[in-house]
Design a protein around this nucleic acid. Structure first.
Lengths: 344, 344
DNA sequence: GCGAGTCACTTATACGTATAAATTCTGTAT
DNA sequence: ATACAGAATTTATACGTATAAGTGACTCGC
């Protein structure tokens, strides 16, 4: 490792713009003008060079809180913790998002309360004078949005299953996932569909949405859909499969909430002596790598996560710059793609 | 939704402590004393009540940047983006961590540069005067740690595979995972072990560690271990399995880097006509839910994520409070537990 | 009856920055 | 020579907070 040079004042508090000014032999204001490339101010090239050299020598970095206090606005994009469990989609976004936002001079801060809502929450969020707040739309109210704007927040962006009437929204429409699966199953000649939805709390909201998409697509084609609640549990899956193996109320095509439920179900169906896809087609969602190792290989609906991450950051940065506040603006984060394999 | 009361001044910039003081008929200093429960200052109960009522009425929340500027220290725990891909362990931590830290009055901020190191990076990190910085230990240098401390950072916590000589470290020792698997296999009478390690970049560091653990445990028992590089790819797995099915250089126990590689491998072994665990025992890691749906059910090594998340936050909060800087302090984040099932 | 001591406050200041307003300097046209 | 217009820079101020230092008003012991 290199000896890590670059800090000639090896100890003591970090340098301020006053320190830089003193070293460069100019006033503090000049330092600020130079380092911020202030428009409408003329500073000679010689002075600029001296200031920059001094700043470099002292390892100067402007104090973020002082700057925020002065300007009334920070470079923070505040993202209150999501109430819904962070899934792989959001995770894959997070990594990318942080880096991209930085390229636009913005810092992502996760904030630690998944439950508070309305004005009380907004009060808390405004304490850092964030440039933007990205939050689940259902946690916003008209008053809270006003409060955020009053506090200098350039834009408030909602996240949700549908556009919010209050703010520009990034729509994560799980319905499209179910719809894609249903269209695929219908395209393969299946007419008697079932949607397997988690019985677990917390996932139910997503499950509802995906189910809704299946239902809508099926209805459009005049096919029937039944909904099946399934806990993530082998015994429950075995009971379900046994019923289908014995009785006549058996669907010929199943969309499972995600790949994990699909795998659970497929295993149970096979153990009950049913053939996949001969007797029943199975489609999952999320395209887990493991789906390809099953026999038959699992068909799935992929949500293109990383594609939208860069775009999301870009969009967010632009919204901040343009102070976008029009609730009519919506961005869809769900780019859905059917990946047919052997199970359907 | 409730009509969202609580903001009698429906518009205009957020209230400051001066506004509260004016409404309560006291000085700004009094407001600060009351709301911070300042020790060593006596304020009558009547006044306290008036101040609190005024603060509530105005929806006052102290400006974080002003407070930081004044005190020289924020309540931010800065976590520069991890260079290593965020895994499920870290993810499960993240959710929990944010909430727990908040209970201690700390805010987690993800910061957007996964590559910068040393003093240059430290300069950037200090701009928010964080209370603590949690970062991969290899990105720190002696000078950068000094800089962070000089900037008022109560503690700098390293993350890494082994204790850092510079700072207190949270050790994520992947070696223990491999060791647990190896001990398990040896306990089942396997003497000819193999460790399957990803050929992919990015995971190789972890792979090395897990392999190291296997090797150490095996050597201690006088058993042999061979290392196998495997890309995450069905063809490669099939070739490997075919070789083992045909030749004599076949191990009787395999530890795979994680459950996904284990599933890939097990599938290939079975397709090649080998019996698991009859011919070869297979052990994975991470305890993915899906492992239970395979036939045979997959044995795995579980890393207790959520257990350590609360503890991590607790530890972090204490380190901040006590300004812990002793590099000899280490916290192990890897609580490892063998989950034997049918594949071994 | 009077300094000492507590209580209950207020006044004043500094943190580090951005920027409006004021000032000095340097040619240049009159 | 003298006013004048930029150019180049400095001076001064405000952002909102925490806290040291100061100020009366009371109580109390003697």
């Amino acid at each position: 490792m290199a000896p890590d040079t670059g800090d000639p004042a090896p100890s003591g508090r970090p340098a301020t713009s006053v320190d830089v000014a003193r070293l460069a032999g100019v006033s503090q204001a000049t330092v600020s003008y130079v380092l911020n490339d202030a428009p409408g101010v003329t500073i000679s090239e010689a002075t600029r060079a001296r200031v920059r050299a001094a700043a470099e020598e002292l390892g100067y970095a402007p104090d973020a809180s002082a700057r925020t206090l002065r300007t009334g606005r920070s470079d923070i994009v505040l993202m209150p913790l999501l109430a819904a469990p962070i899934g792989t989609l959001v995770l894959s976004l997070l990594n990318e998002l942080v880096e991209r936002l930085r390229e636009h001079g913005l810092t992502l801060a996760l904030y630690g309360d998944a439950r508070s809502r309305g004005v009380v929450a907004a009060r808390d969020w405004t304490r850092w004078r964030p440039a933007a707040v990205v939050v689940e739309a259902h946690r916003l109210t008209a008053a809270s949005v006003r409060r955020l704007h009053d506090a200098g927040c350039a834009t408030v962006v909602g996240l949700g299953a549908e556009p919010s009437p209050l703010v520009p929204t990034m729509v994560i429409d799980d319905g499209e996932i179910g719809a894609a699966a249903a269209r695929h199953l219908l395209g393969r000649g299946r007419r008697n569909l079932a949607a397997v939805v988690p019985a677990e709390r917390g996932l139910d909201a997503f499950g509802e949405r995906r189910l809704g998409g299946v239902t809508a697509a099926a209805q459009a084609a005049g096919a029937a859909v039944r909904c099946v609640d399934l806990p993530f549990d082998e015994d429950a899956a075995a009971r379900l499969a046994a019923g289908w193996a014995a009785g006549g109320a058996r669907p010929d095509g199943v969309f499972a909430y995600n790949d994990e439920y699909a795998m659970l179900l497929m295993r149970a169906l096979q153990d009950a002596g049913l053939d996949v896809p001969g007797d029943i087609s199975v489609v999952g969602a999320d395209d887990l790598p493991l789906g390809r190792f099953l026999r038959p290989r699992l068909s799935t609906v992929r949500v293109a996560g990383d594609v939208t991450a860069a775009g999301l950051a870009e969009r967010l940065a632009r919204m901040v710059a343009e102070r976008e506040r029009d609730p009519a603006v919506t961005v869809s984060l769900t780019r859905v793609e059917m990946v047919p394999r052997e199970s359907s």
